[in-house]
């Protein structure tokens, strides 16, 4: 058949187009993924020095109190950001959703802008702003008299010059990430609010629904799919938190490992101590947690679709 030549030429073209991706993907994703399973059963002292240890890495891991501390810190951060950040992001989106609001474009740009700085540079800014003596936060609290108030309320002189980075690490991490991510999540919620059916809102108004009624019966149900997606995205990102505490605490876990996260624990073991095997074991535990979360989200979304 005359089309035979064209077809085979097209197949060759397909593979030529795919080749760069496939080669890089096989070498730098698939191969390391397979290796990570082998590595997790080995101990190393730097690359290329494997000693088989079987399941010992996992046994060491679950009996290491530092690991549980890292898990605890990471989840506190993730839940903290979830319950502080997302409600504020949603309220901001609701406020900016009205087309009649003057300056909504400017507000949107301002709230979104910290995202542009990028996590590393925000971490540097955060480290300087929360610095004990010359930092923006303590100087501002002092100028506003809030420090004196806190000392008066708590009866604790430490509030005169709170040491955010050493004593209140988790709160500092959550506050900085609030500044950084609230506008980013707001953008998703704004996009979701576009899909709210205007005629449904009008119908609800005619039926005598107040603002709360409209929120509950019209807006929440139509924002729900995006909301579950944003929650998942935020959880996945939070559980892999690394740069912010790594830079704030200068590559340590902070006093008593108060700010150590799972990925920092992985980094310390794999790259400071050179045990890539133990680091891979930590990587697998983290991966299983993340995949578990994703599966829960898929289940929830399915359940919603069935109910709808």
């Amino acid at each position: 058949m005359s089309t035979g030549g064209v077809d085979s030429r097209r197949v060759v073209f397909s593979w030529v187009m795919l080749a760069p991706f496939l080669v890089l993907f096989l070498v730098f994703v698939v191969y390391p993924l397979i290796q990570s399973a082998f590595l997790a059963a080995n101990q190393t002292f730097g690359p290329g020095t494997r000693t088989f240890v079987g399941t010992k890495n996992f046994e060491l891991l679950i009996s290491d109190p530092v690991f549980w501390k890292a898990i605890r810190n990471t989840f506190i951060y993730a839940l903290g950001s979830l319950f502080v950040q997302l409600p504020i992001a949603f309220l901001l989106a609701l406020a900016l959703n009205s087309p009649k609001l003057r300056g909504r474009g400017i507000y949107r740009l301002i709230f979104f802008s910290p995202q542009l700085m990028g996590l590393v540079f925000v971490s540097i800014l955060g480290a300087l702003a929360f610095e004990k003596r010359a930092g923006l936060i303590n100087q501002a609290l002092d100028a506003a008299g809030i420090n004196d108030l806190l000392v008066w309320v708590t009866g604790n002189d430490a509030w005169l010059e709170p040491d955010w980075l050493q004593q209140h690490v988790m709160a500092t991490l959550i506050l900085i990430s609030l500044w950084l991510y609230v506008g980013f999540n707001m953008i998703y919620f704004l996009a979701a609010l576009q899909s709210v059916d205007k005629s449904l809102l009008e119908a609800a108004e005619i039926d005598g629904a107040g603002p709360w009624g409209k929120l509950r019966h019209v807006i929440f149900p139509s924002v729900k799919p995006v909301a579950t997606f944003v929650i998942l995205l935020s959880m996945i990102g939070s559980l892999q938190l690394f740069e912010l505490p790594y830079i704030l605490l200068e590559s340590s876990g902070g006093p008593d490992n108060k700010g150590l996260t799972i990925v920092m624990y992985l980094y310390q073991n794999g790259f400071d101590l050179g045990d890539l095997g133990f680091a891979s074991a930590i990587g697998w535990v983290l991966a299983l947690i993340l995949i578990g979360l994703a599966l829960v989200q898929v289940k929830l979304t399915r359940a919603q679709e069935v109910n709808a």
Binding site: F25, V29, L33, S36, V263, L266, F271, S280
Partner: peptide
């Protein structure tokens, strides 16, 4: 098959590849 593998790769957290990726670059 390729499409499926690509979609599957989306759930691999990049942190899992740090240690084996480093070893690969060394090799």
């Amino acid at each position: 098959l390729i499409t499926l593998v690509v979609l599957g790769a989306l759930i691999v957290p990049p942190t899992l590849l740090l240690a084996p990726g480093y070893e690969l670059l060394y090799d």
